[in-house]
Design a protein around this nucleic acid. Structure first.
Length: 288
DNA sequence: AGTTGTCAAGCTAGT
DNA sequence: ACTAGCTTGACAACT
């Protein structure tokens, strides 16, 4: 079992998601930002290793505008050496890595242009993991997408469009249950058709479920992961003071309860909590 | 130096 | 018809 946090570390004063405005796009700007982001990514991973945080989500902004038509630059080639260096570090320390494209990536959209742009964005995410030299356990996670008032058709569109994706994308793409449209049960229905692995999000499951306990749900999600996919990934968070709002810092008693409920099941935990590495450091103590 | 409006991209529910 | 929320920063213009 590994534990980690997404994208940002607030302790070391170095971010791997620095960007710029589209109107300021230039090759020089791109190279400067990517160079900074890669250096910071390395530093964050080094910070994480010290405390045995072996799971990290890389920001989609690692290479700003990578899938935008404005970007014609071969960043993968330019930074090949640096990517390889970081990838070797990740592999050497057996760090798990994932990425999570933003909410506008919708492969089941009705608008073909949205689908086309989404595929470009997915291709970019997979390129990052490829050029790092990571195996197929490094995943790219998205939600199923919109409902558009016709859920069955929208699910079918997801399945049809998934089948048309390149192997490069399919080997890394996974879906996650969301909090209002597609429950774990819906994701499993899709999995039965196309074998796509399912990330289990405990907080979304609290908001939208079909009566499964957390333990049952994790057992079901776990079955969708094959050996080549690595361990099941669980996105963990809990509700904050206000309903529907994520907690600012981890609630340790709740986390311990979760661990107790899932005892004996092996999975990697991504902590989706606002204060990032601070909560991760608290949580990792509970694992020991 | 500090503050604040704005930033490529979309869906959904609520007003 | 329009906006807040998802989840969230941080760029960049302005004071």
């Amino acid at each position: 079992m590994r534990l980690g946090y997404p994208c940002i570390n607030r302790s070391i004063g170095c971010t791997a998601n620095s960007t710029f405005r589209l109107k300021n796009y230039s090759e020089d700007n791109l190279i400067e930002k990517v160079s900074n982001n890669l250096n910071c990514l390395q530093r964050i991973l080094e910070f994480n290793i010290k405390d045995n945080l072996l799971f990290f989500r890389i920001s989609s902004d690692l290479v700003p505008f990578a899938s935008h038509p404005v970007c014609r630059y071969d960043w993968a080639k330019h930074f090949k050496k640096k990517f390889k260096e970081i990838g070797n570090y990740i592999n050497k320390h057996k760090i798990r890595v994932s990425m999570h494209p933003d909410q506008f990536v919708l492969i089941n959209a009705k608008d073909k242009d949205i689908v086309r742009r989404s595929i470009k964005e997915l291709d970019y995410h997979c390129s990052v993991l490829d050029v790092l030299g990571l195996d197929t356990s490094a995943k790219v996670q998205i939600h199923v997408g919109g409902v558009y008032g016709e859920k069955d058709e929208s699910i079918q569109r997801f399945i049809d469009n998934y089948k048309k994706l390149s192997k490069k994308i399919r080997k890394r793409l996974v879906i996650e249950n969301d909090y209002r449209s597609y429950s774990l049960k819906d994701c499993i229905l899709i999995n039965k058709k196309i074998n796509i692995p399912i990330i289990f999000d405990n907080y979304h499951h609290e908001c939208l479920n079909n009566g499964e306990s957390v333990r049952e749900a994790i057992i079901k999600a776990k079955k969708t992961w094959k050996k080549k996919d690595g361990r099941l990934i669980v996105d963990y968070s809990s509700q904050g003071a206000k309903r529907g709002v994520h907690s600012i810092s981890i609630n340790i008693p709740l986390f311990k309860k979760f661990l107790k409920e899932t005892k004996g099941l092996d999975f990697d935990i991504m902590l989706e909590i606002k204060d990032k590495e601070k909560s991760a450091l608290k949580a990792i103590k509970c694992l020991k």
